[in-house]
Amino acid sequence: MRHTLRETWSGLRRNLSMTIAVIVTMWVSLTLFGVGLMTTQQVDLVKGKWYDKIEISAFLCVKDLGQYPGGTCTANQDTTDAQRAAIQKALESNPEVQKVYYETKADAYQQFQQTYKNTPILNTLTQDQMQDSFRVKLVDPNNYEGVVQELRAMPGVQAVQDLHTVLDPLFRALNAVKWAANGMSALLLIAAALQIGNTIRMAAFSRRRELGIMRMVGASNTYILLPFLLESLVAGVLGSAFADGTIALGKYLLVDRNAEETIKTLRWIDWSQTGVILAGVAGVGILLSVVPTLIATRKYLRV
């Protein structure tokens, strides 16, 4: 055991610059890997939240809109009850529609007051300026276009807002970030694995005389392998620890201290999900140091 630890230590010291390079590569690549995972989780959370909620809103006409109300509204006129009923009926008979809510002016105003309480915006609108609306939940959130077309054509609809037009570019951007992070981390992880393999191969080569004698006198494979394994494990564990630390710090500073406080309406990734990701990152880090070592030393262990 003492021999093993001494060999590990001397190996680490001898390859100090390589070890540092390995640790830094592991650190950066594992951090990116973690960020990729976090982004994926966050995108899913946001998507789930938005897609779960109302996907399509059809705002009805109000007198207050004046001369040019837009949509299929008649100037200075509310949507009539007949129009309202027709819209409701059309939506309810559409197979793509899962559920229809009707939100009154009063509901909308209340929500508005709640969202903007304690802000100067609160007093800029009156209840009469709010619009009644149909809120439509779809069976499949991705099949929204048919319903939107239908609603736009119905008389008495001032505007149809579908969140896809707003959210899709956002998700596309987030997806791009996710894949960029995943791709870069994959490349860096490969580089880190190769670097560890090379470092250990060099270490084993420089000690080939000793290894040959060890095999000759009958040292066990475990005994021969252990210093190399420990050496790469030290690099792997340190790299993983730094990466986990960086990810946790990022989550704390960017999400807990920043995003969560400014954008309260979104659900943000929480610590239990983060914990799973941190464990995954550490697992990959350790695997990434052990497997190349086993491959690199195979030649010197072959009996």
Partner: peptide, 16 residues
């Protein structure tokens, strides 16, 4: 195999 080699001593021309 290591156990087997422990029962055999080996000497070479180049001492090693």
């Amino acid at each position: 195999i290591p156990q087997h080699r422990r029962r055999i001593g080996t000497v070479f021309q180049d001492f090693r």
